[in-house]
Design a protein around this nucleic acid. Sequence first.
RNA 1: CGGGGUGUGGCGCAGUUGGCUAGCGCGCCUGCCUUGGGAGCAGGAAGCCGGAGGUUCGAGUCCUCUCACCCCGACCA
Length: 505
Amino acid sequence: MVYMSKKQRTAINPTREENFPKWYQSVVREADMAEMAHVRGCMVIKPWGFGIWENIQQILGQQIKDCGVKNAYFPLFVPLSYIEKEAQHVEGFAKEMAVVTHHRLENTENGLKPSGELTEPLIVRPTSETIIGESFASWIQSYRDLPLKINQWCNIVRWEMRPRVFLRTSEFLWQEGHTAFATAKEAYDDTIQMLKIYKDFSQERLAMPVIDGVKPSYDKFPGAIDTYCIEAMMQDGKALQAGTTHNLGTNFSKAANIMFTDTDGEQKHAHTASWGVSTRLIGGVIMTHADDNGLRLPPEIAPAQIVIIPIQRGKDEQEDAQVLEYAKKLKDSFKGLTFGKFNTKVNVELDDTLIKSSTKKWNWVKKGVPIQIEVGPRDIPENKFVARLRSEETYEKHFLTIDQIKTEIPKFLETIQKTYFDQAKERLDSSIKEVDSFDELKDLFAKDYKGFVLAPWNPCDEEDVRLKELKITIRCVPFEYKKEDKKCILTGEDTNIKAIFAKSY
RNA sequence: CGGGGUGUGGCGCAGUUGGCUAGCGCGCCUGCCUUGGGAGCAGGAAGCCGGAGGUUCGAGUCCUCUCACCCCGACCA
């Protein structure tokens, strides 16, 4: 038996150290973010979790619009024949498709039975390249119709074998951008530009540092010329692909016949690209920032940056009423307050539920609200309140007065945001090891290494079986690293390219 | 889809070689007492033990089938 003092007691059990996957599930449950639905592989996203997604939609959505992209919406159902048009695309997605074959239920002796078989089965979109391509083909006729930039926020279905809340579910929410250009360069530039948007969003809003780069050819999106990605490192050292962009070249425009008449009068295929991020980002935020007391939300994407907890002692009704009154007044004092370089609005929640205040406070610790404010009878005469920052492990009290809100609260929020990023960045930077041989790589992971490895690699078209056996994947060839003439750790060939090797989600 | 495991109040679990009113911790409700970092005491509600069938005087426990979930592979944002 281990002696456990009250101080060591953690809100989340098991701890990260003890069992990372269970810790993760526990954080999701205790923070009241989501739960697995009774429908296989699907999740119910609860308000506190969905609030994060809404912020992602709102902030990233605006950034996407700022790139000249318009939002639209395309059908959930994709005719089978559309998918069939791009050979690699079919191969890549065939094994995880939900297929609709009937359009009616018939009441029989044995219960409801599907009837009215469709002449052509419909696929529930696993992604929308093909169906959007069909629209693009009819929308685009001349170079004057280009570039065409469309985005949709929607749900998609991939019949996953092993679901995990936020990280891998059969149905999930995402944003998929689809763009078409007259030239290959523009399509390429678009994939690079959008990757940059994702990277900045991830780092500046989610406080989640990422490595951007290009996927090995065998790991690219089915039907793409190249796939680019941002890779984040979770606290267990595993990589999480947090966003991707695909340069589709003319593969899909050939399949869907997206053609335009160019300035020279020639009929040409458009060059297309696609890019997306999903609710997986929320899983990334959890595994990047949460600790053994639960979630820690970066202020930039927290559904509420501040919760006010009235300390009502239940002894004196009048006193309790005054405290609540004061709490409301305090809440109003935050109106119009913003923080950070993006002037993000400060949202304040007043927790006036009947739950005991001490319990209440722990609930909000677990939910990861950046700042907890408590107000009690003693604060009223002096217009005071107590603020505690989720980023401080000691949950120290900061005594403030109402007129200090405008100056101090934004500072606190900026500090928390920065602290979370710095901690994650420090972890990432100190967990990238460089090696020059396969044996070193193997030894490292054999010793339960938690982190990334940067090593010389000569790009090839097939995954190395030795890596597969070690459950290690090449995450990407990063855009930035020191170029040196070395030997590929897998083939021994000369190369000046390096790749990130890691275990992954 | 292959290999392994688990299904018992909301959550986490215990339940001996079948045996009497099915337990424990947390949570929930009521009361007293407390309240500025997870309080205490007393009382209470809540489970046809995943489902179906079987063996038996008797099944949470044994057998058969089935479903679901978890872990390991294959696949993946």
